[in-house]
């Protein structure tokens, strides 16, 4: 990937989207890289649409503003596709990772993605329900992101998921999230 990778996350409050951006930043810290992770702060309530951002760069990151031209767009909640233009400003060769059980081609059409842009889906909510028993799709989304961008090796990401979730959750939840991230990595559907 390029010197700097900019990622925009679209989710709803309570889905762990901001946590996902934080875990990714931490995981990408290796190799002397510079990272940023920050949400757009609005009135925070469960279910409300939110955005979060990542920048990962080999050079010092001085830019302190939202990501306007993302290389990667992660849609953690597919219902947002009906209300928000998630493709806004996306690069010509951007990658869209959408949490959906649908076929990537169907989502591509809905997004009206440009020919150079890549659209993939992963059924992150189902994976989360299988592994954690709750609709928390952030870990499988991270797995899918890891697969598509190659920003960090999977085992490195898993280690960071373990570390970040380990502070707050039981071993059962941590194991569930690790399995969910692994499955997200393995179950990406490319169009």
């Amino acid at each position: 990937m390029a010197d700097i990778v900019e990622i925009r996350w679209h989710g709803r409050g309570g889905q762990g989207t901001v946590t996902a951006a934080k875990v990714l930043a931490d995981a990408c810290l290796s190799g002397g890289r510079h990272v940023q992770a920050f949400p757009e702060y609005g009135p925070e309530r469960a279910g409300a649409p939110l955005r979060a951002y990542n920048r990962i760069s080999s050079k010092e990151l001085r830019m302190h503003c939202p990501v306007l031209r993302p290389q990667v767009v992660c849609v953690v909640d597919a219902t947002l596709l009906d209300s928000i233009d998630v493709a806004e400003g996306a690069k010509k060769d951007a990658i869209f990772i959408v949490n959906s059980s649908k076929d990537p081609d169907e989502i591509r059409e809905k997004l009206q993605a440009e020919p150079g842009q890549k659209v993939v889906t992963v059924d992150a909510t189902k994976i989360a329900l299988d592994c954690i028993g709750r609709a928390l799709p952030n870990a499988p989304m991270l797995g899918a992101l890891c697969k598509l961008t190659g920003l960090v090796p999977l085992d490195h990401l898993l280690e960071d998921v373990r570390k970040s979730f380990g502070e707050k959750f039981s071993q059962k939840i941590i194991d569930g999230n690790l399995e969910a991230a692994r499955r997200g990595y393995g179950e990406v559907r490319e169009g």
Binding site: A21, K22, R33, H34, V35, Q36, F38, H64
Partner: peptide, 12 residues
């Protein structure tokens, strides 16, 4: 330091 932009954003 800037509220939210720095206080709540994660950086290296």
């Amino acid at each position: 330091l800037d509220g939210f932009i720095i206080s709540h954003s994660i950086e290296r």
